[in-house]
Every structure is written in C-alpha cells, then in structure tokens.
C-alpha cells in the first residue's frame, strides 16, 4: 500500500510539472499580445501578476515535495547485514608520506586531532558505550515534537482507537 501511495504522489508531482509548463507557454502568448497594446497598463499588470502566479506555482509546495522525497529516500532500505558484517571500511592509513622530520633524524608525531567525527571505528578512539547523537533534532519545533506524540499513552494507539 505504501508503494502505491508513493507512486501516486510521484505521478501527481509529474502532472503538476506538466501543468505548470503548459501554463507558462500560454503566458508567452499573452506577452506577445501585451507588446501590441502598450497603453493598457492596468490590464498589463494583471496579466503579469497572473503570469507570476502561474509560472511560480511549481515553487509553492517545494518544501512539501522535498519532505516527501526525503522521506522516500530515508525509507530506502539499508542493508543491515552488509552494514554490520560487510567489508571493513575504515582501515587506518599507515604512514603520512610528508616528511615531518627534524634534522632528518626524528619523526615529529602530530597531535591527534578530533576533527573528524565519523571515525568512531578508528582504532584508537575512546571506548564508550554511550551514544551521543551527531545531529540532534531541534526539539523546540512543533513539527519535531509532533513526531513522537504517539509514543506516549496519551497519544493515539491505532488508527481509529484512542486512549480515551
């Protein structure tokens, strides 16, 4: 059912795009007319406004579209078996090729920098079981708090059943 829903929404988006392109074409025709009737300014303005309204209509629900496509991408299956048991990813680079040598004798060791966050798997990191989320969500936003509202007993239990 989810797949069919997604397909529908995709079709919708495609249709809308076609619509908007069709709209702008007709606008071009209008423009030619306008050039002929230069003195009717009021009319011209109206048409221009309309043109903007139609031409930019595809922009109006960009946020929603982006959200939908983001969700779809997120739902794309991660292969957990591969993620966990697959090939090892981060094999540490053995040696720095740059000659950090003092008098050609001593090698200067660079102080380890903790800049790169993604190397929790690198061999000499801190051994710690606690998880610190890298990109915590902004819990002061209404939409974000709404995303967990049904985790609580006060929320909805199933589609049509309610705690009350």
């Amino acid at each position: 059912t989810k797949k069919s829903k997604l397909k529908k929404s995709k079709d919708k988006i495609v249709n809308e795009e076609e619509d908007s392109s069709g709209g702008s074409q007709s606008d071009d025709d209008d423009d030619d007319d306008d050039d002929d009737e230069m003195n009717e300014e009021d009319n011209n303005d109206d048409i221009e406004e309309e043109e903007i309204g139609q031409g930019l209509r595809w922009k109006s629900d960009l946020v929603e579209k982006a959200a939908a496509s983001f969700k779809a991408r997120q739902k794309g299956k991660i292969n957990y078996r591969k993620l966990i048991y697959g090939e090892e990813l981060g094999v540490e680079e053995e040696e720095d090729k740059d000659g950090d040598e003092l008098g050609g004798l001593f090698k200067v060791l660079k102080q380890k920098s903790d800049q790169s966050k993604n190397d929790r798997f690198s061999i000499n990191k801190t051994d710690c079981s606690k998880y610190f989320p890298e990109n915590p969500q902004d819990w002061s936003l209404e939409e974000v708090t709404a995303s967990i509202k049904d985790c609580f007993i006060s929320g909805q239990w199933t589609k049509d059943k309610d705690a009350k």
């Binding site: 709404a146 049904d150 985790c151 909805q156």
Partner: peptide, 10 residues
C-alpha cells in the same frame, strides 16, 4: 502495520 501508519512514533 497498516493500522498504525498514521501514528507518529518516531
């Protein structure tokens, strides 16, 4: 599950 599709559970 379908009956929980509409729920916001994180």
């Amino acid at each position: 599950p379908e009956e929980e599709e509409e729920l916001n559970t994180g």
